[in-house]
Simulated scan of single mutants.
Amino acid sequence: MHATQSSSEPLRLAGHEQTVFKTIFSPDSRQLATVSADMTVRLWDLDTRSELFRLRLPYEFNNQVPLWDFDFRCTPTGCWIAVPLTSGKLALYNLGKINYD
């Protein structure tokens, strides 16, 4: 069964150690990006239920507050994760094209 099809049981992705705060589906709904209180952004393959990418998020050094926000986008040429940082900076991660065979 394709992971995005409806089923009676919820899809469970094991990996985060704390509460998940935000999720973003890829345009084709085959990947899911998540961010958690464990300070990681993870990218999941929903067909195989496997982790494709993991990124540890930075802290704001002034008050040790974690940065929770991120964005995940795919274009015909590849997928990207963007994480806003302090001082007007942005960390941009090129994940490349995600192929399915």
Rank of each mutant, 00 (worst) to 15 (best):
M1E: 09
M1K: 11
A3P: 00
A3M: 01
A3I: 00
A3L: 02
T4S: 03
T4G: 10
Q5L: 14
Q5R: 14
Q5A: 15
Q5F: 14
S6N: 05
S7R: 11
S8Y: 02
S8P: 06
S8G: 01
S8Q: 04
S8K: 13
E9H: 06
E9C: 00
P10Y: 01
L11A: 06
L11M: 03
R12A: 12
R12V: 05
R12W: 02
R12D: 01
L13E: 05
L13N: 04
A14C: 11
A14R: 12
A14P: 00
G15H: 08
H16Y: 09
H16F: 06
E17G: 12
E17H: 15
Q18S: 11
Q18Y: 01
T19V: 03
T19R: 09
T19M: 01
T19K: 05
V20M: 14
F21I: 08
F21P: 01
K22T: 14
I24L: 02
I24V: 04
F25S: 02
F25N: 05
F25K: 10
S26D: 12
P27M: 00
D28T: 04
S29L: 04
S29I: 02
R30G: 15
R30C: 10
R30L: 08
L32T: 05
A33I: 01
T34F: 08
T34Q: 07
V35E: 11
S36M: 03
A37V: 09
D38W: 11
T40H: 11
T40M: 07
T40P: 00
V41T: 08
R42V: 00
R42H: 03
L43T: 04
L43M: 02
W44A: 00
D45R: 03
D47V: 02
D47M: 06
T48F: 03
T48A: 11
S50M: 01
E51F: 10
L52E: 14
L52M: 14
F53A: 11
F53W: 15
R56K: 13
R56P: 09
R56T: 15
R56W: 13
R56A: 13
L57D: 04
P58D: 02
P58A: 03
E60K: 11
F61P: 12
F61I: 11
N62H: 10
N63L: 10
N63M: 07
N63P: 13
N63K: 15
V65Y: 08
P66G: 02
P66S: 11
P66V: 13
L67T: 02
L67W: 15
D69S: 05
D69Y: 04
D69L: 10
D71V: 04
F72W: 15
C74R: 12
C74T: 07
C74Q: 09
P76Y: 00
G78N: 08
G78S: 07
C79L: 01
W80I: 05
W80A: 01
W80V: 02
I81M: 09
V83I: 13
P84K: 10
P84C: 09
L85W: 10
G88A: 05
G88T: 05
G88V: 04
A91M: 15
L92E: 08
L92Q: 13
L92C: 09
L95Y: 07
G96M: 15
G96L: 07
K97V: 06
K97H: 03
K97Y: 03
I98D: 04
N99W: 00
N99M: 01
Y100E: 06
Y100M: 04
Y100I: 08
